[in-house]
Design a protein around this nucleic acid. Structure first.
Length: 565
RNA sequence: CGGGGUGUAGCGCAGCCCGGUUAGCGCGCAUGCUUCGGGAGCAUGAGGCCGUGAGUUCAAAUCUCACCACCCCGACCA
């Protein structure tokens, strides 16, 4: 590609709002432009990266016998009503009506559509197993799109689905996908952690997420450097220490104006860990007290897993329920509520909790004696340093970006949409399914996040838009141009993606732009080195610069490309 | 939806508190000369319904109200 003819609108500055490194760099490098919240155009340079990622994904999917489809983004409501997700997707789904008033949506995912095809065409165990995939645009009306392309409302997803007769078949296809995912991410230059996760809106059984550690991520994962335990915070567990104060009688004490854990703890001279944090949530048909240790946080994902959908109560609702303001409440002496307590509180005594009267707390609270607990379960957000549930060594909590997610769906969609087959004995059974997703744009963003600094990036070899950038510093210098053109033509004929900066610009401009384009190899052709018959070869991913004679440069570059490509 | 913030030239921002000439600055763009190994210098020039709509006022980018959009922090997902 000749840069003088190409369309890459680079920028010196980007809006202050763009904070995430990948977002800033993609804007500066002229790879994306925004139209609305979470809606972006991908420009030619960015599209090359996306295309490379898609092809890489295709190769690995094809290699495990997964067949590529292309399904519609538009989808009739009936399908989703059958699966129950017309309801459960709620406001996350983009909905519309056609001219006849028929309800449709822009598909947020494609379980229903693929399952319908399976239902219509798979009849016998002889037709199974199958694995199908597509790369399609998905639409999700995210509550909060953010961080450039990391969380958007229209995005590309590779979604694959497996169809099997039995659990063993599902396990095998799940394993194949899992292995393929590891190859894909490795080839894309990403270091991923596989973590246990919750299946959320997809429904179904086991699932794992593929996470890239990054401060720009909006997931939290817990992992153990010693034994390899790894889980999303929403399902992570740890062995936090049980804490009890001295046993004693329940006593009401005056705590004027002391509402927060810190205030009460300071005022009564009791460590925060010996306080009970009581949070009130409103569920669909119940009021819920969630209890954790004073120095812990409730993880709402875990809470919802325990009690179903719920939201924090408004102050007036807390007042109606307990008679006290937030800060002075607890389930002590309160009936008709569900009380869920974190496991670490099991058997604890000598604690401090709200007295359900403004400006008063109880001391000497004995969890099991004084509170009618419905269930102990893991409710707390795991904190760095807590002992691992498997090996007791300290855990680490990190931010991460989810780039892939694989599920064992089971028979939920097959049953809802009538995807049954006849087994060897002529008995009708639902097809057992799995579902496997990869976020295409997220791979691009993660690669940048991994290999960038403030002003530049270096693409991993397999997804780079251009492998080699040739930079003749002065295009009015005849010899420079001749060498550059020569090398450019040779590389092009060898099929190497090469970018030639043939613009009549100053060296500084060319270098700055090149650093944004992110090619892992530069060939810099300048008069200074040419006087000695040399040009400069930069291997950016290795941070190496070498001088190579004009005579050798072509073979040297070909050699480098061969070794890495 | 809750909390915080922003909307002024293609891009990045100042001006707004405390209303008052022709609305500024930097980048970019156009033309010319000089420069030429890390976003050059000088000169000249083009480019604005000051987010939208109401209101207050002799007078509104500036004050008031409403709306819209976008960003950031919290609950969802690839």
């Amino acid at each position: 590609m000749r840069l003088s003819k190409y369309f890459v609108p680079t920028r010196k500055e980007v809006p202050a709002e763009a904070e995430t490194p990948s977002h800033r760099l993609m804007l500066r490098a002229g790879m994306i432009r925004q139209h609305a919240a979470g809606v972006y155009s991908i420009l030619p340079l960015g599209w090359k990266v996306i295309t490379n990622i898609m092809n890489l994904v295709r190769e690995e999917m094809d290699a495990i016998g997964c067949f590529e489809f292309f399904l519609p983004a538009l989808s009739p409501s009936e399908l989703w009503v059958k699966s129950g997700r017309w309801e459960t997707f709620g406001d996350d789904m983009f909905r519309l009506r056609d001219r006849k008033g028929r309800e449709m949506c822009l598909a947020p995912t494609h379980e229903e559509v693929f399952t319908e095809i399976a239902a219509n065409h798979i009849q016998s165990y002889r037709d199974l197993p199958q694995m199908w995939y597509q790369i399609q645009t998905k639409f999700r009306d995210e509550v909060r799109p953010r961080s450039g392309v990391l969380r958007i409302r229209q995005f590309l997803m590779k979604d694959a689905y497996s169809f099997d007769c039995d659990a063993a078949g599902l396990d095998e296809n799940y394993r194949l996908q899992r292995e393929a995912y590891l190859k894909i991410f490795q080839r894309a230059g990403l270091e991923v952690k596989i973590v246990r996760a919750s299946s959320g809106a997809m429904g179904g059984g086991d699932c794992e997420e593929f996470m890239v550690l990054s401060d720009s991520g909006d997931d939290e994962i817990v992992n153990c450097p010693s034994c390899g335990y790894a889980a999303n915070q929403e399902v992570a567990e740890s062995c936090a220490e049980k804490v009890s104060g001295p046993k004693g009688d329940l006593k009401k004490v005056h705590t004027p104006g002391k509402r927060t854990i810190e205030e009460v703890s300071g005022f009564l001279e009791v460590e925060p860990s010996k306080l009970v944090k009581s949070l009130v949530y409103i569920g669909n048909d119940s009021k819920v007290f969630a209890l954790v240790r004073g120095d812990h946080q409730v993880d709402e994902g875990k809470l919802e897993a325990a009690v179903g959908e719920c939201r924090p109560a408004e102050p007036h609702e807390v007042k109606e329920l307990t008679g006290a303001k937030i800060g002075f409440v607890s389930p002590v002496g309160i009936d008709n509520v569900t009380v869920i307590a974190d496991t670490v509180l099991e058997g604890a005594t000598g604690l401090v909790a709200g007295a359900n009267e403004d400006d008063y707390h109880f001391t000497g609270v004995d969890i099991e004696r004084d509170i009618n607990i419905d269930r102990f379960t893991s409710l707390r957000a795991v904190q760095s340093g807590e002992p691992c549930i498997q090996c007791q060594k300290p855990l680490k909590v990190s931010r991460a970006i989810e780039v892939g997610h694989i599920f064992k769906l089971g028979t939920r969609y097959a049953e809802a949409l009538g995807a049954y087959f006849l087994d060897e004995n002529g008995i009708s059974k639902p097809i057992i399914m799995g579902s496997y997703g990869i976020g295409i744009e997220r791979i691009m963003a993660c690669a940048i996040e991994t290999y960038c600094d403030d002003t530049s990036m270096v693409w991993p070899w397999e997804i780079t838009p251009f492998l080699v950038e040739i930079i003749p510093l002065n295009v009015t210098h005849v010899q420079s141009v001749e060498i550059a053109e020569d090398l450019y033509e040779t590389l092009r004929q060898k099929g190497i993606p090469v970018l030639l900066d043939d613009r009549n610009d100053r060296a500084g401009v060319k270098f700055k732009d090149a650093d944004l384009f992110g090619s892992p190899v530069y060939v810099v052709i300048g008069e200074r080195n040419l006087k000695e018959g040399m040009v400069e070869l930069r291997l950016r991913d290795r941070n190496e610069i070498e001088k190579v004679s004009v005579a050798d440069i072509t073979s040297r570059v070909l050699n480098v490309c061969e070794k890495n490509g």
